[in-house]
């Protein structure tokens, strides 16, 4: 018996196995993001962005990593450049984000075309939905730039990519997927984990580093 009977039952009802696997992995990925924030101290753009980027990377497969990372970096770079261009015009927030999104999507389009010219058909034929998800990250990025400044937005973008990559490898780990499909109830364990994360008041690892200079002065 490969899968849990309940999984088999769902498959028999016509739910694709892929869908079941990804939906069961979502709590795992979300818990991982929470762990990164509360215990390690890596912030990223909230919980939605790193989780959705994780699944976008999966959707880009078979060349998920290569193209996914390339497109993510392009979106962030173009987002940063657009801010510099649009800053001087002093335009209101939503029109500015709309223009940023337009610039980003046109740039991505030209990257795809350029890829086609270079006979990188894999790049040109990537799925549109993960692509759109990647592009809309630009809004999150612009909002963070305004709230916390360029430097912080860039750091958070890198952290987001980092967490998403860990998430990607987690989902790509066949052993884990098989384990979850065989014992789907383990997903409920994420509630226990999140409950304790939510009550955890200790210092984050990043804070140990941030405050390391104080330790000398405390008796």
């Amino acid at each position: 018996m490969l899968y849990h009977p309940f999984i088999n039952f769902m498959v028999e009802q016509g739910v694709p196995l892929q869908t079941i696997a990804l939906l069961l992995m979502l709590p795992v990925v979300a818990t991982m993001v929470a762990f990164f924030r509360q215990v390690i101290g890596i912030k990223a753009f909230g919980i939605y962005t790193p989780s959705i980027i994780t699944f976008a990377l999966i959707a880009f497969d078979p060349n998920g990593l290569k193209y996914g990372i390339a497109i993510f970096i392009s979106v962030i770079l173009v987002g940063m450049i657009s801010r510099y261009i649009l800053k001087r015009f002093r335009i209101l927030y939503l029109p500015r984000v709309a223009m940023t999104l337009s610039i980003v999507s046109l740039s991505i389009l030209s990257i795809l075309v350029f890829g086609g010219i270079q006979h990188r058909t894999g790049l040109a034929s990537v799925d549109i939905f993960p692509l759109l998800i990647m592009i809309t990250i630009a809004e999150k990025f612009v909002a963070t730039q305004i709230e916390k400044g360029n430097r912080m937005a860039f750091i958070l973008a890198v952290e987001t990519l980092g967490i998403s990559l860990v998430g990607y490898f987690l989902i790509r780990w066949d052993g884990l997927i098989l384990f979850v499909l065989r014992f789907p109830w383990v997903v409920l364990l994420t509630f226990v984990i999140n409950f304790s994360l939510g009550k955890w008041t200790g210092l984050r690892i990043a804070e140990y580093i941030r405050f390391r200079k104080i330790f000398k002065y405390i008796q």
Binding site: W200, T201, E207, F211, I214, F215, I218
Partner: peptide, 8 residues
Amino acid sequence: SHGLLGMN
């Protein structure tokens, strides 16, 4: 580290 206040 117990004397320090962290985010959490």
